[in-house]
Write a protein that binds this DNA or RNA. Structure first.
Lengths: 139, 139
DNA sequence: CTTGACCTTACAGTATAGGGGAAGGTGTAT
DNA sequence: ATACACCTTCCCCTATACTGTAAGGTCAAG
């Protein structure tokens, strides 16, 4: 199977497939006499795994680590379980930040509905935005 | 006021201040005879505004647009109000994505607690991660 | 023999918000 | 005279996940 066929079967671009190989996520496939990449069927499973991992918020770097375990003959499950815990913590933190931001934005929208633009003092650029809360999160 | 003093007063680096100037967020200050940037007091208000804007999730590009209104003699409030609406929508969407991801991660963690790594089939890399839900979000 | 589809490598660019460091000028104190 | 802190511009680097483009090789059909 050449790279174009693999790409259309997995709905990736050939660019992305070569990129994954360069990043160590896909093993280098055999080559045809002409130098074309020649994939086996199991490449599709690898790619499915990568996309599934991305869908749950794993980076390609993290997926590379997981795949490295498997390619070294070890089950990566323990490592994966730890990563899942870590991701869950990160996501919870991020949600908390965004909820706080959401509340701040709501306050600002309320103010926008009551303040008169004509009274906006030029030296502050815009009276709607003013240092107020130590909000840490940015999207 | 030279750039170093402005930097320490605003708790920014001189790098960041020059960067803001290059991005059109700060007007080019006067120069001393020796070519040093010489800031007026109002530069501090501008920088406070920029940091406040960042804190509510505005990008430097968006802040540049807002500042451009003010520098053209117009109150940016209407534009800002629209941006706040847009940001609120984005944040709400992002939160929804992350909550969905959080639920998915929770399911996977439950599975991790019950599956035996020894039974993990090598061809799938790790049985904990498998295409399942069309989750769109990635942090 | 040529066209066209497909493949190759390699370099550059996207967006975001700066940080690192070089090479050199300025200003004040000793 | 020279040490030292501070300033200047300039270019490259960071992380993430690719996409775009150039220049050229491979392969089957007409």
């Amino acid at each position: 199977m050449l790279i174009g066929e693999l790409a259309s079967k997995t709905r990736l671009t050939t660019k992305a497939i070569r990129f994954y190989e360069a990043q160590g996520l896909l093993q280098s496939p055999a080559r045809t006499a002409g130098g074309y990449r020649d994939y086996r069927e199991d490449a599709m499973a690898r790619i499915s795994f990568i996309r599934a991992g991305q869908a749950i918020g794993l980076t390609l770097g993290e997926l590379r680590e997981i795949i490295a375990f498997r390619d070294h003959g070890q089950a990566p499950c323990v490592h994966v379980a730890a990563l899942l815990e870590q991701k869950a913590t990160e996501v919870a933190l991020r949600i908390a930040e965004l909820v706080e931001l959401q509340e701040t934005l709501q306050e600002l929208r309320d103010r926008a509905a009551h303040l008169d633009p004509a009274e906006c003092p030029p030296d502050s650029v815009c009276h709607l935005i003013w240092p107020k809360l130590p909000v840490s999160g940015r999207p």
